[in-house]
């Protein structure tokens, strides 16, 4: 095993055999060490939030990872390869330029009973962001999200002064025993927090360079998307016993969570808020 131990000899057999053995060991341990070092670095540089989203996104079912341009009817079938982050997408600008400046059809501000106001941008995790006149960004839950969580049992908002990152955790909400990680639509520093009944949750100061919001859906895109989301929600709620149970049209009940069978609630939250 080692020189100096009885039975070891400096012959070809020992050198080749043990040489290979030690190389294998070194490769294994070096690779683990690299992974650990990177993990420690990631934890320090608060990349954990971004990594969590990437890991979660990887684990989402493929039919939940549809490209926004598929939802807008610009392409037949496309799975998003960029974790819903169009800022780094090579193809997204091509789709936009293919529109030749023609805007997408605006659509109705009310989709299947859910409000989709035109003054804000939407995140795929059912949050929206609205620029304030004073340069801050207001973040809140969209109508579907608000109906699902109703009035949460518990809510854990970020501290004022902390940073949130796009696709990272915005805040945590607990409802009927399941914890939901609501995703933040944008990067920035939290300057104020509010509760859901005020219509918003966070006020965020964007980074000095300005916030890149290309990854967010415009109201015109959000309306067909919302339709798809309701479909998806119905699918998620559906059990073998009960079929789709959401009202078609009309005003949805205040607290949709009551309409969901308790044993499906956790899965439904995961599906809507993109939590794995």
């Amino acid at each position: 095993m080692f020189p100096g131990i009885y039975g070891f000899a400096w012959d070809a057999g020992h050198i080749i055999f043990l040489g290979i053995f030690y190389v294998v060991l070194m490769v294994v341990f070096a690779t683990i060490a690299v992974a650990m070092r990177r993990a420690i670095r990631d934890s320090r540089t608060s990349r954990a939030e971004a990594l969590r989203w990437h890991a979660d996104f990887e684990d989402l079912p493929e039919r939940w990872r549809r490209c926004r341009h598929e939802l807008a009817g610009e392409i037949e079938n496309r799975t998003c390869p960029n974790a819903f982050d169009c800022r780094h997408c090579v193809e997204h600008p091509l789709f936009v330029s293919a529109r030749n400046g023609r805007p997408l059809p605006e659509g109705e501000p009310r989709v299947a009973g859910f409000e989709v106001p035109g003054d804000r941008l939407y995140h795929r995790g059912h949050t929206w962001v609205r620029p304030d006149p004073e340069g801050l960004l207001t973040v809140g839950l969209d109508d579907l999200g608000a109906h699902l969580l109703g009035s949460p049992d518990m809510i854990e908002l970020p501290k004022v002064g902390s940073r949130v990152v796009a696709n990272g955790t915005g805040w945590l909400a607990e409802k009927s025993g399941s914890t939901v990680r609501v995703l933040s639509p944008v990067d920035g520093e939290v300057v104020a927090v509010g509760a859901g009944d005020e219509g918003w949750y966070l006020k965020i100061r964007p980074d000095p360079a300005g916030s890149d919001m290309r990854h967010l859906l415009s109201p015109a895109e959000a309306r067909p998307w919302m339709l798809r989301e309701i479909e998806r929600l119905q699918m998620a709620i559906a059990t073998d016993a009960v079929g789709a149970a959401l009202a078609d049209g009309g005003v949805p009940v205040e607290d949709l969570s009551e309409a969901i069978p308790p044993e499906r609630r956790d899965d439904v939250y995961g599906a809507v808020f993109l939590n794995v």
Binding site: A39, D42, R47, A48, L51, A55
Partner: peptide, 9 residues
């Protein structure tokens, strides 16, 4: 978080 990050790496 450290498990998640380690898993990713």
């Amino acid at each position: 978080p450290s498990f998640l990050v380690f898993e990713f790496e």
